[in-house]
Design a protein around this nucleic acid. Structure first.
Lengths: 250, 250
DNA sequence: CAGAATTATTGACGATTCGTCATTCTAGTT
DNA sequence: AACTAGAATGACGAATCGTCAATAATTCTG
């Protein structure tokens, strides 16, 4: 039937549409960086883009949906960083550390994108986002969670970690995630408010991870290994391997 | 001079004003509970209140400022709960557990207020809130932090806890706070999205606390004490001691 | 206590921002 | 070239925010 004839151009269209969506998201980020969250309005986005408002609303069903889209972008970046961090050689506990470090680095180098993630967690945003985009976000979070779970499972198989009573792979992944999210989300606003102002970010992050993993008895313990050195090593690799915002191989 | 004559009535005014502000905040909470965050508009708040819009803007310089005010309310409630939790008998580590439990209980029994706290962390809200109210929030957070720091300091003095190299009272307080904030903030949205849906909230919270404190070697370790029993005991006391939302003694 | 002075309240109004939709345009098909 | 399906446009209506001149209430003074 007309299947091929209609599908083929539709694919081209879809590609062009997705490309433009990416450009719109980049533009939105620029506005956020430059003028803050209060400076981002749909009219302004329209004015600075090459398309009309109607077209923008063809992509995002509401302003809040745009924020959720930005958070999806954020998660995709995180996923890339996580996958890169996993390639760094080291024992299993160092790999956990690498994930935390990648997360922290992301929150520092891309504060705007990270704040979008925080904003998209807010009920006001969730309530007005499209179900399709919320599903997309859920899918990405599932992938991120899967990475953590794989790491934990591998460590158990390998013998570095043993599950005690009342522990589960899911629970451990959640606790790690909560620590990373909480610490990175609170760091900036907390220091802006003058609270904990004399706290050094990196050692504090490392401390949090070490406490959790020592509590799990995940070998080698922080008393038997210099994780400060591991942190420095991983940091250097992450910083040199991905100097730009280039998402593609080269 | 006219000092006394002008100060005295001004105090009455101020009191009445504060009372009305509380009523407005309660009304805002009711609207949020009933119609969600998208249902709260200044016009609606005006319509349901006994004052006019101008008067409301006399209290809150913007809609965002109202959210920050709600977060201040939230922190005040937390402070009350913390002070109550500290009165529960037990060793120092049980008291830390009591704080975490109070925090968790608050996030469960007053989800709306807790979400206001999350919302008020958002840059869009911070940017448009009044400096005065932001300062108020900072002051309350300082008080909450002080409680945590006191607990840690006391434990060190008493011998249940020893600071290792690279640790500080501030850092420990921050890590605890991050864990509590992250876990409670992520729990709801995470479960709504179907992620970690089979996770039991309370055991997971307990796990997070135990890992951190075991990692710190805060005595007695979870292997030497039944913290599940402690959790139950503290939970019962908190639930019976404060049945209603009554903030005053009776 | 009358009236002046100061302060608070009101709600209609302007301004901003969101989101829609009838119309126009484009690209592919016959 | 004519036709058609679908996308883009931007002027417009709707919703919401925030203001301010007019009004009311309260406090001060002679």
């Amino acid at each position: 039937m007309t299947a091929k004839i209609t599908v083929e151009p539709s694919q081209k269209r879809q590609q062009a549409k997705q490309l433009r969506e990416q450009q719109l998201l980049i533009l939105a980020q620029q506005i956020l960086q430059q003028d803050g969250f209060a400076g981002l309005t749909m009219d302004r986005l329209t004015a600075l883009s090459s398309v009309s408002k109607g077209t923008i609303y063809n992509h995002f069903c509401s302003k809040e949906d745009l924020f959720t889209a930005l958070s999806v972008d954020s998660l995709q970046r995180q996923l890339q960083l996580f996958q890169r961090a996993l390639q760094i050689p080291g024992h299993s506990r160092e790999q956990v550390l690498a994930l935390h470090l990648a997360y922290h680095r992301f929150s520092m180098t891309e504060p705007t994108l990270f704040l979008c993630l925080l904003t998209a967690t807010t009920p006001a945003v969730v309530e007005k986002s499209s179900p399709a985009r919320l599903a997309l976000r859920q899918q990405l979070e599932l992938q991120l969670a899967a990475i953590c779970q794989q790491l934990i499972t591998a460590a158990i198989a390998e013998g570095s970690l043993q599950l005690a009573a009342g522990q589960s792979v899911d629970a451990l992944a959640f606790v790690q995630w909560a620590q990373a999210f909480g610490a990175n989300a609170l760091l900036k606003p907390t220091q802006q408010l003058g609270l904990f102002s004399q706290l050094q970010p990196q050692p504090t992050m490392l401390l949090g991870v070490n406490l959790l993993l020592d509590g799990l008895n995940w070998k080698p313990l922080s008393s038997d290994w210099d994780y400060h050195a591991s942190w420095q090593r991983i940091m250097t690799i992450l910083a040199t391997e991905a100097p730009g915002a280039d998402g593609q191989l080269n």
